[in-house]
Nucleic acid binder design. Structure first.
Lengths: 154, 154
DNA sequence: GAACAACCTCAAGTCGACTTGAGGTCAAAT
DNA sequence: ATTTGACCTCAAGTCGACTTGAGGTTGTTC
């Protein structure tokens, strides 16, 4: 076993702290979401900072972003320094906007469903769930909102 | 052009009215989400009722359900009769519950992001976005937000 | 009765986000 | 020095939800 009191983390340590599998961590690295140093023997070593980036990845997934979108956000943060407050709050603000928007979408849906509970909806014409044209008027090109659900599992 | 004033719809008509492509409609049918009759020449003909089912599929996707989950919901509705109000409101109620739950999750996330906007989050330990354990504490066994739920019971 | 769009089936491809496997190397403990 | 578990790369597989393609048929219109 690698002794676990260094400031650099092995893949296994980093993965388990981030709550993901080792292959997933490697995959994230391949996608440019995290970075590592290598030992003389070519093994990955992660800085603590990498955990923060991984946590941001998880948060982004909860927000409903694709890895590419998350990468775009991460790319605006310094790669090997703690982000400045300005960096950080800009990112938070953008994501909060996305979340707020999604919440509004779901609330529209929720009220449609609620009005459906009693309506019987025997005629198509009346039902706002079935006829979401008005409700979803904003829907542009394929904004079928990407559902990503990570089953943290384990 | 097929003349467009029958009570039965061709694939093309049904697909365009449902806002999906023809292959997608065929795919849905293959998955058992809709059903059709066939002409003597083996072409699909859809009842109006199929449009309602397709609309339910779309709604379910907006709710965030998989096609399997949506199928499970549809399977409890009569296949070739309009659903009774009881059927309908039971489904709406279940879906409304899912939506409400998802909204609550996103609201937790939203408030985390909001508090992040100003916090700087220079230390991992404090940030609720980065440390969602407490925020997500209400969440029971696994299952981030119902998607892989084996109780696809809609 | 020919043109031609719309239809048919079946197979394979795509994309995102991973997982799984084969075959081989590194490093901490004994 | 050897063991053993953790690590390495590269390739291929999986899953959901579709899309694309090839090759052939139907049905309405002129």
């Amino acid at each position: 076993m690698p002794h676990t009191s260094h400031s650099l983390l092995t893949v296994g340590e980093a993965a388990s702290r981030a709550g993901i599998t080792v292959p997933t961590l490697r995959y994230y690295e391949e996608r440019g979401l995290v970075h590592s140093q290598r030992t003389a023997g070519n093994q990955r070593r992660y800085q603590r900072l990498a955990l923060r980036r991984l946590a941001i990845v998880a948060a982004g997934q909860r927000v409903g972003l694709s890895l590419d979108q998350i990468k775009a956000a991460l790319d605006e943060l310094p790669a090997d320094r703690a982000p400045s407050q300005a960096d950080w709050s800009a990112m938070s603000r953008r994501w909060a906007g996305l979340v707020a928007r999604r919440i509004r979408e779901l609330q529209v849906l929720e009220s449609s469903l609620e009005s459906c509970i009693g309506c019987g909806c025997l005629s198509l014409g009346r039902c706002s769930l079935i006829n979401p044209d008005d409700a979803a008027a904003e829907e542009g090109a394929g904004s079928r909102w990407a559902r990503r659900a990570r089953d943290a599992g384990t």
